[in-house]
Write a protein that binds this DNA or RNA. Structure first.
Length: 488
RNA sequence: GUCCCCAUCGUCUAGUGGCCUAGGACAUCGCCCUUUCACGGCGACGGCAUGGGUUCGACUCCCAUUGGGGACGCCA
């Protein structure tokens, strides 16, 4: 049975990088009909916060992930929060100490820091020199009894570690480059490397799929797992996601939390779809895929080995594609949720709002584009933009508007789409204008800008009253300009 | 600096020795559709980092160079 895990630490919110890792684990597990476990790695007590943990759960749920085992789901190999598994790690540590595979280290953080800096200055990679490794048992006992709290190091002997990476193929590491590393802090809390290695085995994880930045940890974890008598899981490393500056995604260069992405108006399925395309490619040409389709098509053998740069433009495109494919009710529900709290919701009747939202659908890339558009459509335009000046300086503009106003007056308060079409036909006949000459002045009059939704639907969404109000305003603007011109 | 990884259009990628005159997607530009913009359709632009091998034949295999990235914590 395939068992994978997603193991975030609650020291921050989930962002694109995390989610891509979660996604690939998820797709891998679901594709194989295996299980995915959610484990919280909170061994850094100073930085871990329960708020973050709650956010992580909320984000994962929003994105559409479901887990088979975890804090909320339960399961047989829990607890699923590392801070509740300390006795387990302690047992493992004691076993290693008893077998002389780990030892107490009394070097202080400051001492180590000095050593590291010296090594780096000399152009050598830092490794612990093993000062406490050669301590006699009596010396160790003595120091502990005198009240010094030691950290614990794993004893690394010369060896060649080989493993078959699920993505990168055969990997070979010489332990010569690895010094004895710390597995438990002087506070007795284990470090990530150790807790993670122990848990992956205790929780019977079969495949560890993580970012390539974890690669150098892998030989250490294999060492730990073997020393504990476990069979290490299989490892697969994923190429990294980089920011626009070609370095690891971070707050500086575009790393964005899920809640921010949500705020920016991206659909969960679009986020997942785009992230799946970063480092993986579907076997067939179609790129717009639902989560189910991704599960069906996913295969680690199609994962790339080179890092990928996060491209907001493509995310926008994929988001738009998903928006266009959503059912009308889903679209409206999501759009309204996004607009929650904004004045548009309260200032419009439900049917007016729905009709405006539909009219805007082909013109937006994210749900966040909705609000600015509504503002353009519903706030009276100023007509001082360049396209407006240009449109109104055409002598036929006024004729078009007057004709439109007159024809609209002939109708009852509420016109249907078909009637708007007829009105436009009428304007066309009366003015003998068509194409840009006909539509441009009207578009500008209604919105103040030269681009936007289709005109007929837009007119019917705005309604007769708003249109007349704008026409009057536009005509006044034109007249104002004309008289100013005459005065000169 | 040391170790590790990577290298196809600006970006994401297909490509596993002949199907490649290198395919697709985003972006950009043009045309068409729409009596307008957008949506949609069609098209253009644009790439195998360099140098050596191996081979009848290299984008594909090997080596080097160059370039980029990652890891070198009592962080995860």
């Amino acid at each position: 049975m395939t068992r994978v895990r997603f193991a975030p630490s609650p020291t921050g919110n989930l962002h694109q990088g995390n989610i891509r890792t979660a996604l690939f684990n998820y797709l891998f597990a679901r594709h194989q009909g295996g299980k995915i476990i959610l484990r919280i790695e909170d061994t850094d007590q100073e930085r871990s916060q329960t708020d973050f943990e709650a956010n992580i759960f909320a984000d994962l749920r929003w994105l559409g992930f479901t887990f088979d085992e975890g804090i909320q789901e339960g399961g047989e190999v829990g607890p699923y929060r590392q801070s509740e598994r300390l006795d387990l790690y302690k047992k493992s540590l004691e076993k290693l100490i008893a077998e002389q595979k780990a030892y107490a280290c009394f070097c202080t953080a400051d001492e180590i820091e000095v050593e590291r800096k010296r090594a780096l200055a000399l152009g050598k990679s830092y490794r612990y020199q093993g000062k406490c490794r050669i301590l006699k048992p009596e010396e160790t006992q003595e120091k502990i009894q005198s009240g010094i709290k030691p950290s614990y190091r794993f004893k690394v002997d010369r060896d060649i570690i080989k493993f078959q990476d699920l993505v990168y193929g055969e990997k070979v590491f010489d332990t010569e480059n690895i010094g004895d590393f710390i597995i438990a802090r002087s506070s007795e809390i284990p470090v990530y490397l150790f807790a993670c290695a122990v848990d992956d085995c205790l929780m019977q994880i079969t495949h560890v799929i993580r970012g390539e930045d974890g690669m150098s940890n892998t030989p250490r974890q294999i060492l730990i797992q073997r020393a504990l008598g476990f069979e290490p899981p299989q490892f697969g490393h994923l190429p990294l996601i980089l920011g626009a500056d070609h370095t690891l995604l971070s707050k500086r260069n575009g790393s964005t939390s899920i809640s921010e992405l949500k705020q920016k108006g991206y659909l969960p399925q679009a986020i997942l779809n785009y992230l799946a395309l970063l480092g993986w490619s579907p076997p067939e040409a179609e790129e717009i895929l639902s989560l189910d389709q991704l599960i069906q098509q996913f295969d680690l053998s199609r994962v790339a080995r080179s890092s990928a740069i996060f491209d907001w433009g493509k995310l926008d495109h994929i988001n738009q594609a998903h928006m266009l494919r959503m059912s009308e009710t889903d679209y409206l529900t999501f759009a309204k949720k996004q607009l929650e709290g904004s004045s548009w919701i309260s200032s419009l009747s439900p049917s007016e709002l729905d009709s405006l939202l539909f009219t805007l659908r082909p013109n937006i890339k994210t749900f966040n584009d909705l609000s600015p558009w509504l503002s353009i459509l519903l706030v009276l335009p100023e007509y001082n933009s360049e396209p407006a000046q240009e449109a109104f300086s055409d002598p036929t503009a006024k004729k078009v508007l007057e004709s439109l106003a007159a024809l609209l007056q002939e109708h009852e308060a509420q016109l249907k789409t078909k009637e708007f079409e007829n009105v436009m036909e009428g304007v066309k006949k009366q003015t003998k204008l068509k194409g840009k000459k006909l539509f441009f002045p009207i578009r500008i009059t209604l919105t103040g800008v030269h681009e936007g939704p289709e005109l007929i639907p837009l007119m019917s969404a705005l309604g007769k009253e708003r249109i007349l109000e704008r026409i009057q305003r536009a005509i006044e603007t034109i007249q104002h300009k004309e008289s100013a011109k005459r005065a000169v």
